[in-house]
Computed example of a mutant assay.
Amino acid sequence: MTEAAVAIEGLIQRRAHFQLGPIGLTIPKGCVTAIVGPNGSGKSSLFRLMMGLAKPDAGSVRMLGETVDERDLVAYKSRIGYVPEQAIDLEDRLSGEWKASFSRSWYPDWDVNYYRELLRRFEVDSGLKLGKMSKGMRRKFDLSLAMAHHPELLLLDEPSSGLDPIAWKTMIDILHRYMEEGDRTIVMASHIVDEVRRLADYIAFIVQGKMLGIYEKDALLDAWQSLYVDAGGQPIQWKTMPGFRGYDLAGGTAYKVVTDNAAEAERWLDAQGAAVISKQKLELDEILTHLKGSV
């Protein structure tokens, strides 16, 4: 990985019925990292900790080289754009224009022309009160606001929530263009498989408050496969296969075997005298299901 945009060490946040962590995670600069996990896994809590909106019980967070603590965080936050999962209800009576006018005073690099261009592309009427906007329009407004100062780092918690298919494609295009600068970083939480496939360079899995690891996306999808194997009637100790995650009888002497290390598994099967009939890459949600079972 390259230089870290986010570095988290030993992070723990305790609540009455949930504990996040301990989490260790390094997110590289210049890449898109998707944090993927079931609802209630702690994704939004992790974003709040990264933004200094909540305090951990242990551990540390560094954002763009700055430690997140009780010091004045204005300088580092001015380099970040953040879109939380839930809009802030207290802002419902404000117009979009009023919020934009207030927000721009905090960002020296605010670009009104770029902000207007984003509103135009997203077809957002910023003259409306925020509480009168549909969920999708509010999402598009918040994203436009978060990007208007050309942040080095974008934190996006379920960015496509409420977007229709056309708006979703527009968002994907805007985020791709944002990354063309080469030194920018996106960290996003998403449950949309196609969104992760199109945008992410790295994927970090979180389940029940535990970080299961961060993986290069293409390598991950190449490694996790279902192999359809003809065992030729001979007994095979499937659980000793490299990357073994499970198997089912597929009919006759054929088996469907899941591995997280397809290349090594194929070599192992060849040594066992078993023939791989076909193979299929797993989808992200299928990988996550297997990872959940190992927690």
Rank of each mutant, 00 (worst) to 15 (best):
M1H: 03
A4S: 15
A5E: 01
R14F: 06
A16N: 15
H17S: 07
Q19G: 06
L25V: 09
P28I: 09
K29Y: 08
T33K: 06
A34K: 00
I35L: 15
G40N: 13
S44F: 02
L46Y: 02
L46G: 04
F47M: 03
R48Q: 07
L49M: 10
L49N: 05
M50F: 01
M50K: 02
L53P: 01
D57W: 08
D57I: 07
A58R: 14
G59R: 12
R62L: 13
T67A: 10
V68Y: 01
E70P: 00
R71I: 00
K77M: 05
R79P: 02
I80E: 01
V83N: 09
E85M: 00
A87Q: 03
I88F: 07
I88P: 01
L94W: 15
G96T: 10
G96N: 05
E97D: 13
W98K: 15
K99H: 03
S101V: 04
S101I: 05
W106P: 02
W106D: 08
L119C: 05
R121A: 00
E123D: 15
L128N: 14
K129H: 12
K129G: 11
K132D: 14
M133V: 11
K135A: 03
G136A: 08
M137P: 04
K140W: 00
D142G: 13
S144Y: 02
L145R: 05
M147G: 01
A148V: 01
H149C: 02
P151G: 03
E152G: 06
L153W: 13
L153A: 14
L155N: 06
L156M: 11
D157I: 07
P159R: 11
S160R: 08
S161P: 00
A167H: 01
A167E: 06
T170F: 02
I172D: 03
H176T: 09
Y178T: 00
M179G: 04
D183N: 12
D183P: 00
T185L: 09
A189H: 05
A189T: 12
H191P: 12
H191I: 12
I192K: 14
V193R: 13
E195C: 00
E195G: 02
R197L: 15
Y202V: 01
A204N: 09
F205N: 05
Q208F: 11
G209Q: 05
M211H: 08
Y215G: 09
A219P: 01
A219C: 07
L221F: 13
L221N: 07
L221I: 13
D222F: 07
D222R: 15
W224E: 13
S226I: 06
L227S: 04
V229D: 10
V229W: 13
P235T: 10
P235A: 04
I236H: 10
K239H: 11
R245F: 02
G246T: 08
G246I: 03
Y247E: 14
Y247F: 13
D248T: 10
G252Q: 03
Y255M: 06
K256D: 03
K256S: 11
N261H: 14
A271T: 13
Q272V: 01
A275L: 12
S278Y: 10
S278A: 15
K279M: 09
K279R: 14
K279P: 02
K279Y: 00
L284R: 11
D285V: 15
L288V: 11
T289L: 15
G293L: 07
S294V: 05
V295R: 00
